[in-house]
Design a binder for these strands. Structure first.
Lengths: 239, 239
DNA sequence: ACAGTTCATGGTACATATGACTATTATTCG
DNA sequence: CGAATAATAGTCATATGTACCATGAACTGT
């Protein structure tokens, strides 16, 4: 039976792990595309705001609340879902560092139609995604690459304190470009409010690197809401 | 009776007239907001792609086909429409010059629920708009102001041949900024492929101004479709 | 210990972009 | 004709971008 009209949200959720940009995928155990990987998504409940639905779906997959979310685009081609007229409002989500984006520790509670949730490097997805999710994911990544240039998005992906090399790695992972360390550092210090953390240094590198933290506003402009919800640091809200 | 779920498109349609940026509004003659002004909009038909619905709605209001359209944002708060759960996929539309964006010649065929269509300067709307359309319109204008900086959007609003003063007026109307004529010209010539039209000059000004036309690509990047439909010049498709 | 390696960080030099400003020119108006 | 106006050219100080070199502080292996 083909359904007349139903409304879903799909989330392109990104995090940084091992200096790679990774995306969260779930494996379906229902037709269509049973066994295939897709973006985490779910139907919007009656009387549920779209942003709330996105938060809920993400929370059902990751157990995290208050993650930064931004609406991306709405896909509604008839035929994009064989079950019926499915309207998908897609969202970009940014998981802050500290949440291990590894294959093992991805999911907490999974819905009926999902077997497994896992993180994949955006460059090495496990084959084509279900539905039109490949298109959504690539658009989501493109938007990230644009936004990191003029919003403090990179600081969402990084821990509180980070080195210039960390920051550079984020930019390189998101945009795919390579940057000169010296010039990059100069530009970042000029563009953003970065405060060196006194005393502490990072010992991973040969020469100890200075640690910085971002002290500017954390709002990411762009949405029609003007003010974007301030992301609370994620917490295991229920267990 | 409150409807369960229905899907609409709403269009923020812009055009340039008398060097002002104007937006197309329609006057409602049905509740809710009967007598109030709103963006042109309409319900998406079963099996109708979202972009097609937007083109259709715009065509029903203006009689124009093949206008440049770009999806903006999807508004779906419960309560944004008293009749039920209304999901509005909003679009930006750009009407090329040549279409008179005056109050009189706005509409051709109007739907049942609409009395009148008219153009208003974006700075002087006729009071608050119906539903959340004021928010949509202001976001639409903000997006235009962003996009004109890095896409050839200005050339959609201008006629084939234009002077530097015309181009500057478009930028000033869209962004609200003021630009130095000399510096502006230098920047435009450096950024875009502009070809002077040999011989012809514009005689409106004291000193005749050189005419240019844009010879670069007309695609406006940004959507997930990558390639955006090439806008045909509008034509009165039916009369 | 010491030499070679790695990477953070500072510096230098050059090209190009930007922005404020002046100058010149071709018109129209009175 | 001369003043006014707006188009266009030019000038110059400063900012920014980019390539590259230099130095410092750790590590690694012998």
């Amino acid at each position: 039976m083909r359904r007349e009209l139903f409304l879903t949200v799909d989330i392109a959720c990104f995090a940084l792990a091992e200096r790679e940009l990774r995306i969260l995928l779930v494996r379906r155990n229902e037709e269509p595309f049973s066994g295939g990987w897709s973006l985490p998504g779910g139907e919007v409940a009656t009387e549920e705001p779209l942003d709330d639905a996105a938060q809920r779906v993400l929370s059902e997959t990751t157990g995290l609340w208050g993650v930064f979310l931004e609406q991306l685009y709405t896909f509604g081609d008839p035929g994009r879902d064989p079950r019926g007229r499915a309207i998908s409002v897609s969202y970009n989500a940014i998981l802050p560092s500290g949440v291990p984006a590894t294959r093992q520790r991805a999911a907490t509670r999974l819905g009926r139609s999902i077997d497994e949730a896992a993180w994949f490097p955006i460059e090495r997805l496990p084959g084509p995604l279900a539905f039109d999710h490949g298109r959504i994911a690539s658009y989501a990544r493109w938007r990230l690459a644009q936004k990191i240039l003029y919003t403090p998005l990179a600081f969402y992906l990084l821990p509180e304190n980070f080195t210039m090399a960390d920051l550079r790695a984020v930019h390189e992972a998101v945009t795919g470009e390579q940057y000169d360390p010296s010039n990059f550092s100069r530009q970042m210090l000029a563009r953003w409010d970065l405060s060196p953390v006194p005393g502490s240094r990072d010992r991973r590198a040969r020469r100890p690197a200075r640690l910085y933290h971002y002290i500017g506003p954390r709002e990411i402009s762009g949405g029609p809401t003007e003010a974007v919800s301030t992301p609370k640091l994620p917490e295991e809200s229920d267990r």
